[in-house]
Design a protein around this nucleic acid. Structure first.
Lengths: 156, 156
DNA sequence: ATGCCTGCAAAGCTTTTGCAGATGC
DNA sequence: GCATCTGCAAAAGCTTTGCAGGCAT
């Protein structure tokens, strides 16, 4: 017996996500969603994504990338982060909330959740009389990856 | 007996801070430092500061404000934050490290430190093999100030 | 068929930079 | 007096918007 595990025509699952979000299923949207789903680095800037599109021989303008990402954000499909380098990065919303720790040298981004931190934040907000809507915790540091400082050397 | 508590000619303390930072004591620098020291809201954007300068009848260009703030940042006098609204805000470095909680409605920013959060961050970084250089935690929410939603109504 | 999308180009916003004149030391 | 600093204007980078044509439904 053979079980077909991932019978997914191109645009199938993505199409459903898009339709659920009330968006027409178009090439730019499907492609961008695919890129975000299959990205090695889950945190991409608009330019990163467009570079990827160019690689894939997709003729999609940067303006469209921004428009699509903004729509995705509104639909809750992606989250927009502003790390300290000014440029916005987008991340597919899969799995629950998490925070980020990123390497100053190579740009490596890792995700984590710490229940105690989450808990203490609620306590702090409570004490100060705030009703938490959202929060962003980013730790900056140096990672110990073998190929770290990679980006440092290629773009000095 | 009379003790003179704050015998500070204009530019006195600021001048020392500036000289210590290796910066010439000039009008723009002194004024901007004064504004940051006396600000009700310790977190100001470049534009906020320039508006203040205009109020004080100081003819100082926005470019200079940015230049001075960048120098102050390099000298460790101020910290530049990028909250999620895109515009950078600057804060005078007084007192130890702290995190921020800010109101989505009125822009009210409060500061806090939570030893447990700090501690857990070190633990997380350690587990993931990062050497922490810095971190930014911002909680976004709704505050319960009597005059909250103030900014919401003035700039809709 | 029609109303939502896209590409292109142009504008918008914050921030930076070049240059000639001004200013602190 | 000389190097540093400032003001102005122009440029730069990221992101958004206007418009005419294209595409999904």
């Amino acid at each position: 017996m053979v079980v077909i595990l991932s019978q997914r025509a191109s645009g199938d699952v993505e199409g459903n996500d898009l339709r659920k979000a009330g968006l027409k299923v178009t090439t730019p949207r499907v492609k961008i969603l695919e890129i975000l789903e299959t990205a090695v680095d889950r945190h991409m800037s608009a330019e990163d994504i467009q570079r990827r599109l160019v690689d894939l021989r997709e003729d999609i303008g940067l303006a469209t990338v921004y428009r699509v990402l903004t729509q995705f954000e509104a639909a809750g499909l992606v989250t927009r982060h502003h790390f300290e380098d000014g440029m916005a990065v987008f991340e597919l919303n899969a799995g629950p909330h998490h925070d980020h720790i990123l390497c100053i040298d190579c740009g490596n981004v890792e995700e984590f959740v710490d229940p105690q931190i989450e808990e203490r934040q609620r306590a702090v907000a409570d004490k100060l009389g705030f009703e938490i809507k959202d929060h962003a915790l980013v730790i900056y540091g140096h990672c110990r990856r073998p190929n770290c400082a990679h980006r440092k050397s290629t773009s000095p």
